[in-house]
């Protein structure tokens, strides 16, 4: 698999995504799904940010946050095996109606991606949904960014300079093959190479 490390600065990134951010159709559908669930439970694997905590915590019954980006960063800095981070996602099976994976998979190697997907599949309730983003090689950057949710499902990317994570750029087809246990519900092309995926557990 090709790995990309095109270091775009924020200005370049905004030129690709538009300064005003972009409207996330996947997130809109995802939230519509959650709105229909009684006592909805959502897991966000990060990076944690103020705007998202407020947005999601006001929309779902219970908003679970387990920032796997910052955990991954700490494990790497300490020289500990990355495979150990999965003990942090120690939630019961079928706990969540939705999981926000964002672009975590792009920061993991093949083996850990498989572990992440298996865990997400287990933690989701039947019919539950997961959101996955792929930045693509045109706008992918080694600098980690949070997907900050604004009004009307607009998403802005904010650099997280405290995170130093490897980038393992994945193509759209790679995402579809890694998420094999799930049903691909919807996918949206936001910009060339930048896609949003909505997956559902049977």
């Amino acid at each position: 698999m090709a790995a990309f490390a095109t270091d775009l600065n924020q200005k370049d990134l905004n030129q690709h995504l538009g300064l005003e951010g972009y409207t996330s159709n996947a997130l809109k559908l995802f939230m519509e799904h959650l709105d229909q669930q009684p006592q909805s439970r959502l897991l966000d694997v990060g990076p944690v940010c103020q705007e998202n905590v407020r947005f999601f915590a006001s929309r779902v019954s219970k908003h679970y946050v387990c920032d796997m980006f910052i955990r991954l960063d700490r494990y790497i800095r300490k020289g500990e095996p990355v495979s150990q981070i999965w003990k942090e996602l120690d939630y019961h099976p079928e706990s969540f109606d939705g999981i926000l994976v964002w672009e975590l998979a792009d920061r993991l190697d093949e083996q850990d991606v498989n572990r992440l997907v298996t865990l997400c599949h287990s933690m989701l309730k039947p019919g539950g949904m997961a959101v996955v983003m792929v930045m693509g090689d045109q706008i992918a950057s080694s600098e980690t960014k949070s997907f900050v949710v604004g009004q009307n499902y607009r998403i802005y990317l904010r650099p997280q300079p405290h995170l130093d994570l490897p980038l393992r750029g994945r193509q759209n087809r790679d995402v579809l093959s890694m998420m094999v246990p799930f049903i691909p519900a919807k996918s949206f092309i936001c910009r060339p190479g930048f896609m949003e995926f909505l997956f559902q557990r049977e």
């Binding site: 905590v53 915590a57 219970k62 946050v65 920032d67 910052i70 955990r71 949070s146 405290h162």
Partner: peptide, 19 residues
């Protein structure tokens, strides 16, 4: 009732805001 979170916080939480 309300919450603020700075980028970089090491967090594992369940959050319930007063509606």
């Amino acid at each position: 009732k309300s919450i603020s979170v700075e980028d970089g916080a090491y967090l594992k939480a369940v959050i319930e805001l007063e509606r």
